[in-house]
Design a protein around this nucleic acid. Sequence first.
DNA 1: ACACGTGTTATGCG
DNA 2: TCGCATAACACGTG
Length: 273
Amino acid sequence: MPELPEVESARAVIERNGLRRRIVDVDDSDTFVCRPHPPGEIRHALLGTELVTAMRRGKSMWCRANSVPEAVTLGIHLGMSGKIVIADSDGTEIDGGDYWERGRQPGDYRWARFTLAFADGGRLMLVDPRRLGRIRLNPPVDELGPDAQLITPAQFRAALAAGSTAPVKARIMDQHRIAGIGNLLADEILWRARIHPAQAVSSLTGPEQGRLLRATRDAIRTALREGGVHALTIIPYRRRGAACPRDHAPMRTGAVDGRTSWWCSAEQVLVPG
DNA sequence: ACACGTGTTATGCG
DNA sequence: TCGCATAACACGTG
């Protein structure tokens, strides 16, 4: 389910198949997913327009509509269980990969929480069982940190600004500082960098910061190339009884930043500080 | 029946 | 006001 690589897949789906199609109907009746907009507000803003761009920063996407006189952007966030599905009038379904299916079959739109209907009969849907995804107009994307895929060394150092006792895992998952890293990607990055998830950011050494940036880039590049976070090395070893695939020490688990975390008991050691 | 969850955000506390 | 921890959100799955 969606972290940066999956969201990028969804963005590409919209870019390939959702742009330059006239919007003739909008279902924005799910007030939880479309909050804070009242029903009809998003519909009114988009009727008669076409989406013309599909952008992404971190896990957030937004599409510019060719509305006049004022520009409108449609913000899309997949949450934990959201997926973009585009179906043509003949029922052919184009999706963003297999990152969330859980037995769902093409044509099963029970959990369509938001729908754009196009003039040719096609539809773009946010399919989202848990309804933790979100649709809104003009999302404040500037509040997000730099995209984790594109972040520069200077931006990365700034995001790790010292003077904080926060766990490093919480810091790299803070979307306001670095955008795009979720729970699974964070575990992979920290495992690659051989850093304990609960290590205080203020205690990270220069070499550790360097390893962290390299691991971030490598993990994201791999996940993008392989089609999602499922392809990352450590994911199959996030389970009771597993051994680290590098040194075969037992994997440990615990809650860090309120999230289930897994790390190698030998290579990722919590040091005081 | 019950706990869990790959994300975000409101709330409370020091 | 800031940083941080926690609960809440919603609902399918094991």
